[in-house]
């Protein structure tokens, strides 16, 4: 066991924790906004995948990783627009349409990938990193925490911004009203449909960015079905966090660590089968749900479409 606690192992674990945790963090923060507004966004997996594809395509075609991230945001928002139109404007069932959008995005991105890239398999050059002077030179944690892609810092900044917005601004209160009692918000002069649509588009942007990070920074290429449930984990993170961005961050890092344990253990030469390790994060969630499930609180109007004048 002590062989595991080498600097190499710890360093690759921490690095993996960040690389795997950031897309989850972005997805979780995005989903949290939707859920606060009363939309259970199951389509987030599809939004991530669309972001991964569009992000990779833009980065590859325009030869700029930054345009790639913008492309990723655009891809996620595109799916989110469909979701907003169908589930909020028209009021169709959020779970069914969410599953439909996820399946559609899976199929479409795999199809496009097949016709565009399956003969050449292009890869992006290794992304530029921002080294924070001095801190990057710290042993073990230095390169893991302080030598990362700028998107990592952007994601961390989003935690602070959102926490402030939810707690200290009118937006937080309005969102909560949309999720708890949309009729009351409507009476008070708020615009439920607009607010919920904006929340879903924000989710799409965050999920798309997370997907683009997976493709452009994590893998350096697009692989069909590459999100592998990351969006669904984002939903769980949002539910566990009970509306608090900081909790999303903590949970995302725990998940990221569990997900990256596989590679880290392989680096350390351990032969625990990957399938067993892959079960860890999901088992952890279930344990947490068994322990704290009763206290997990969701907005009262979550999943219910709002129609003015109905009851």
């Amino acid at each position: 066991m002590e062989a595991l606690l080498t600097p190499v192992f710890l360093s690759s674990l921490l690095t993996g924790m960040i690389v795997a945790g950031v897309p989850l963090l972005l997805a979780g923060l995005g989903e949290q906004m939707s859920e606060k507004a009363g939309v259970l966004n199951i389509g987030i997996e599809g939004m991530m995948l669309a972001g991964a594809y569009a992000g990779f395509w833009a980065a590859w075609a325009l030869e700029s990783i930054w345009l790639g991230f913008l492309g990723g945001i655009a891809g996620g928002v595109l799916v989110a627009i469909v979701m907003a139109l169908l589930c909020i404007r028209i009021g169709l069932n959020q779970i069914v349409i969410g599953i439909g959008l996820t399946l559609g995005a899976e199929g479409l991105t795999a199809l496009l990938h097949h016709f565009q890239f399956s003969r050449t398999y292009p890869r992006l050059p290794a992304p530029a990193r921002v080294d924070i002077p001095l801190l990057t030179d710290l042993p073990v944690i230095g390169p893991s925490f302080f030598g990362r892609h700028p998107i990592v810092y952007l994601a961390l900044a989003m935690v602070v911004v959102l926490a402030f917005a939810y707690r200290r601004t009118n937006l937080g209160l309005t969102l909560r009203a949309a999720g708890e009692k949309p009729a009351a918000l409507d009476v008070a002069g708020g615009h439920v449909v607009l607010l919920r649509s904006a929340a879903v588009l924000f989710t799409g942007a965050m999920a798309g960015l997370g997907g683009a990070y997976l493709a452009n920074v994590g893998a350096g290429t697009f692989i069909p079905f590459m999100t592998g449930g990351a969006g669904f984990i984002g939903i769980v993170l949002a539910m566990l966090a009970r509306g608090r961005p900081l909790w999303v961050l903590i949970a995302a890092l725990v998940f990221g660590a569990a997900l990256s344990l596989t590679t880290a253990l392989q680096v350390a030469g351990s032969n625990i089968p990957t399938d067993v390790i892959q079960m860890l994060p999901f088992a952890a969630v279930i344990v947490i749900l068994v322990a704290f499930g009763r206290r997990a609180r969701l907005p009262a109007a979550l999943g219910l479409p709002y129609e003015r004048g109905k009851r």
Binding site: L40, I235, V236, P273, V276, M279, F282, A283, I286, L289
Partner: peptide, 27 residues
């Protein structure tokens, strides 16, 4: 008995079950 949303728990158990099935086959 706890009112925990089943969408979350079933999604988690499905990922868990897929890995468990693989582990059972291989081990």
């Amino acid at each position: 008995y706890q009112g925990v949303n089943e969408i979350i728990t079933t999604l988690m158990t499905t990922f868990l079950g897929i890995s468990l099935a693989n582990a059972l086959v291989k081990l």
